[in-house]
């Protein structure tokens, strides 16, 4: 599809981008004396309705953002890369509800490509053929592993690896360099996260092979070899790659690394600010909203636990605006 087909959508996105929070807004939130005052600031800014529950309100905002993009985008396929992870998350929740008393509905995330109710019914009734192709095989495999081994973590790993594979495949299908790079960054940061955790837990090579996905910029086999030897060897390997900042941030703290993962994505999507046509500004807007809501949750949670402003600032993500 031609980039000019997105003219209306991009202009509308530019108009709604003005409602995104700025650094000074976040500073105001951080400066609030306690949790209640922080919530009051959100209500004053109209981010949360006067009588709404904060968490529910933040949760519904992603769904509203997706609905907006769905309405204005001339085609939805290139954007589905943004929400496909929610489908795989919902699959994990549905699978776990088979072996635990927890209600999976409480853990479902929207927006998603497949309706959570359909996913639940397909998994609970073992009618995996009702699911779309991208979920069917993974659901069947993960279900098989779960009932055979009762190992929830192994099933999770299968689903997580399938999520990244699916994101990479979808990105390649679009042929859009911006989306391909975004998918690559998502996969690389997830791989580093998984490899480091696996190295610390002393997981074997077979586990790493299942859990990691193939990426262009960071060799899977080299990552496995390094992770197999231990966390320090993995960090030493990362220090020699273009992802040396990952090693530096992991050494600093887990929250610094999580922030780095989000910030590196933000640095990439920022180039969409200068594009007047094409799908890129729509993708950037969705990720900007996602980051904003994540940051608000972090600030509110810190406020709830009475953490100091400096500690909160260390965790605040880079914003799109």
């Amino acid at each position: 599809m031609k980039d000019t087909a997105y003219t209306f959508a991009v202009a509308k996105t530019r108009a709604v981008e003005t409602k995104l929070l700025s650094s000074s807004d976040l500073e105001q939130l951080i400066g609030a004396s306690d949790y209640e005052n922080a919530v009051k600031v959100l209500k004053d800014k109209g981010i949360v309705g006067e009588k709404d529950d904060v968490q529910n309100s933040l949760k519904s905002q992603m769904n509203e953002t997706w609905q907006l993009l769905n309405e204005i985008s001339p085609e939805i396929e290139p954007l589905e890369i943004l929400i496909v992870k929610n489908d795989f998350h919902n699959l994990k929740s549905a699978l776990k509800s088979l072996v635990s008393p927890n209600r999976c509905e409480d853990h479902f995330i929207v927006p998603s490509i497949v309706k959570p109710e359909l996913l639940k019914s397909a998994v609970c009734n073992k009618r995996f053929y009702e699911l779309p192709d991208f979920l069917e095989n993974t659901a069947e495999k993960a279900y098989d592993v779960l009932v055979r081994t009762m190992d929830g973590q192994l099933a999770d790993i299968l689903v997580d690896a399938a999520t990244l594979d699916n994101i990479l495949q979808r990105s390649k299908k679009t042929g859009n360099v911006y989306i391909i790079k975004l998918a690559e960054l998502l996969a690389v940061t997830a791989n580093i996260k998984t490899a480091y955790r696996a190295a610390r837990a002393g997981k074997d090579e077979a586990f790493l092979h299942t859990a990691l996905c193939d990426t262009k910029e960071l060799s899977k086999s080299a990552l496995i070899q390094a992770a197999k030897k231990g966390p320090e060897e993995l960090l030493a390997y990362l220090s020699e790659t273009s992802y040396k900042d990952a090693a530096k941030n992991i050494r600093a703290s887990s929250s610094a690394f999580e922030k780095w993962c989000d910030d590196i994505i933000m640095c990439h999507i920022e180039s969409a600010k200068y594009k007047s046509f094409g799908v890129e500004p729509l993708i950037a807007y969705y990720i900007a909203m996602e980051t904003e809501i994540k940051t608000l949750r972090i600030i509110l949670s810190c406020k709830y636990n009475n953490l100091q402003a400096d500690i909160i600032r260390e965790r605040v993500r880079k914003l799109y605006v």
């Binding site: 003219t7 209306f8 991009v10 202009a11 509308k12 530019r14 108009a15 709604v16 204005i72």
Partner: peptide, 14 residues
């Protein structure tokens, strides 16, 4: 037409 599409996008919001 191109400029009009963009204009409509902005006007629908503001």
């Amino acid at each position: 037409g191109i400029a009009g599409e963009a204009a409509a996008g902005v006007i629908s919001e503001d």
